[in-house]
């Protein structure tokens, strides 16, 4: 859906997240345009995953806003200027537009591959079964797993499971795909097939926010790279700049450590 106001697809505004005494995000703002790929890099504990989980409200931000096509997810602004926190159900409506891929895949083990992919289109979007099936098969084809559609997740390799998880997210035809360290729990020889699928999505113009440790992927595929440190954006720019000539000393150190 095109947005008349021309707002960015995703807008994160002064996001704070606190777990008890620990402030994990300390005011993060950035925007993602439609069709672009933004990678978020940084050391463990820098707040990358929390940031991604705040975008679809799996974690409720302590303050700040996330807007999808200009509309804030968590708050409703009425015409008279008053504000209201949205209910879980309303937030769910926004989440349909935000496909999420988890580090641990989180496939539903009691459903077949096809069952995993077709579940939300039927139950959440209310598509007729036949149409949902067609859609699900197309999504599985996109991740090259059509032949596994009647298997249960337990019978698949990690890489295959993650590709099913991507198909499951795609089947909701989201505006944005969020990847939370999608390859971090895979054996090295299995990361390639998942990255290949992600690369394909980027080439097709999918809007993506990717939290990753795969610097090669971030460098090649992203339009923009964000380096997060201590809950703040420390460096941000096109990959050539962030990887080639980072202005921040911390970013330089982080990248230097990874290259050794």
């Amino acid at each position: 859906m095109a947005d008349p106001a021309g707002a960015p697809c995703v807008e994160v505004v002064d996001l704070h997240k606190r777990f008890g005494a620990l402030e994990v995000l300390r005011g993060v703002s950035f925007a993602v345009d439609r069709g672009s790929v933004v990678s978020i890099i940084g050391a463990s504990g820098s707040g990358k995953s929390t940031l991604l989980r705040c975008i679809n409200y799996l974690e409720q931000p302590t303050s700040g806003e996330v807007r999808i096509d200009g509309e804030p997810i968590g708050i409703e602004r009425r015409a008279d200027g008053s504000e209201r926190r949205r209910s879980m159900r309303e937030i769910g409506r926004f989440r349909r537009d935000l496909g999420m891929v988890f580090q641990q895949f989180n496939l539903w083990p009691h459903l077949t591959v096809l069952g995993n992919v077709v579940e939300a289109p039927i139950r959440v979007r209310g598509l007729p079964r036949r149409q949902a099936m067609e859609l699900a098969r197309a999504c599985l084809e996109r991740v090259q797993l059509s032949e596994k559609s009647s298997e249960y997740p337990a019978r698949l390799s990690g890489g295959q499971q993650q590709r099913v998880a991507i198909a499951r997210a795609l089947a909701m035809q989201p505006k944005v795909m969020l990847f939370d360290e999608a390859t971090s729990s895979l054996d090295p020889e299995l990361t390639g097939e998942v990255l290949e699928v992600m690369r394909g999505l980027a080439v097709d113009g999918t809007t993506m926010i990717v939290v990753t440790h795969e610097m090669g992927f971030a460098r090649e595929v992203s339009d923009r790279v964000i380096f997060l440190h201590g809950g703040l954006i420390e460096e941000e720019g096109p990959p050539a700049q962030v990887f080639g000539t980072p202005r921040s000393e911390r970013c330089r150190q982080f990248l230097a450590k990874l290259l050794h």
Binding site: L58, L98, M100, W108, V124, A169, M172
Partner: peptide, 17 residues
């Protein structure tokens, strides 16, 4: 596991569903 629930919420399912 918590991930099972989160995967469902992430595709827009309600807690009841």
């Amino acid at each position: 596991g918590r991930g099972q629930r989160e995967a469902a919420y992430a595709v827009g399912m309600s807690p009841l569903l």
